[in-house]
């Protein structure tokens, strides 16, 4: 890992994240996946929005864009269409990706453009002080919900699948090695890939909801995550309160940049 930090991180550590925040673990999983696949550092672009998770792009030694709140996907779409040879990886959070950027999210999934989105799900808006997000579970406390949230949370993996994403996976900060595998598969997949990375926010989500310290929250991830293979053998009652990890959905569909090249070719033929 020390060598990977020298190679892939900018010399500006320690990072800004709170003590025990899982974002550092998820970021290192992304780096391990990039290293595993041997991606060219000059041909890899990292785009992020705004939020705790989106700070990751500033620490990584690639061509990076720290874009506007919720707008990481339109920026990434532009980069990918301008040069489809690039590996474009998007780092976003639950608030950034599913609330303010929710519309961009479903439409980028619908286009099936070859981007890899790693959505850090810490269940809260951490950077702004703990407001609830669309992925905050019902009845959780937040600074904007002192008596608990009324709304139901999105299942972002199901949403991505329904919107047309062709690769959907989930991992956790606890299952860090498995997260490397699902991210690597997502980068290799030709189409829109969503990887939900469940991570802990011990300061704003954990403290308000009495979830314990970072170690306890990591153990909670361990105890509530069930692999897709193991879930097949369990009854719906046994799966109550659990969430699935691993590759949740994979399918084939025409990829957007290739279709777009087809249009360019047809138009140029017509002009001659």
């Amino acid at each position: 890992m020390e060598k990977l930090i020298e190679k892939y991180y900018r010399p500006r550590l320690p990072h800004i994240w709170c003590p025990g925040c899982g974002n550092g673990i998820v970021t290192s999983s992304i780096i391990k996946a990039i290293d595993k696949l041997g991606l060219d550092q000059d041909k890899t672009v990292i785009v992020s929005g705004i939020g705790c998770s989106s700070r990751a792009s500033g620490y990584l030694n690639f061509d990076t864009v720290h874009s506007l709140h919720g707008r990481a996907l339109p920026v990434a779409t532009g980069i990918k269409l301008a040069d489809p040879e690039l590996n474009v990886i998007v780092i976003t959070g639950d608030g950034d990706g599913t609330a303010i950027g929710g519309n961009h999210f479903i439409h980028t999934a619908r286009r099936n453009i070859n981007l890899t989105v790693i959505l850090f799900n810490n269940n809260i808006y951490g950077m702004t002080g703990g407001q609830y997000s669309p992925l905050t579970p019902t009845d959780s406390k937040a600074t904007t919900a002192p008596y608990g949230t009324l709304e139901r949370a999105f299942d972002i993996a199901e949403l991505a699948k329904a919107a047309g994403a062709t690769y959907v996976a989930r991992g956790t900060a606890f299952h860090a090695n498995m997260l490397v595998d699902v991210i690597a598969k997502g980068i290799s997949h030709d189409g829109f890939s969503l990887i939900e990375a469940v991570t802990q926010c011990p300061i704003y989500f954990g403290r308000q909801n009495k979830k314990g310290d970072a170690s306890t929250m990591l153990k909670t991830q361990r105890d509530h995550a069930v692999t897709v293979e193991a879930a097949k053998k369990l009854s719906p009652e046994q799966l109550e309160g659990k969430f699935k990890i691993g590759v949740l959905h994979q399918s084939e569909a025409p990829e957007y940049t290739k279709q777009y090249q087809g249009i360019i070719d047809r138009a140029q033929k017509g002009a001659k």
């Binding site: 320690p14 025990g20 550092g24 673990i25 090695n177 970072a214």
Partner: peptide, 13 residues
């Protein structure tokens, strides 16, 4: 420890 450290503060070789 190395895998779980969120702050890249420990390395084992």
């Amino acid at each position: 420890c190395e895998m779980r450290c969120p702050d890249y503060a420990i390395f084992v070789e």
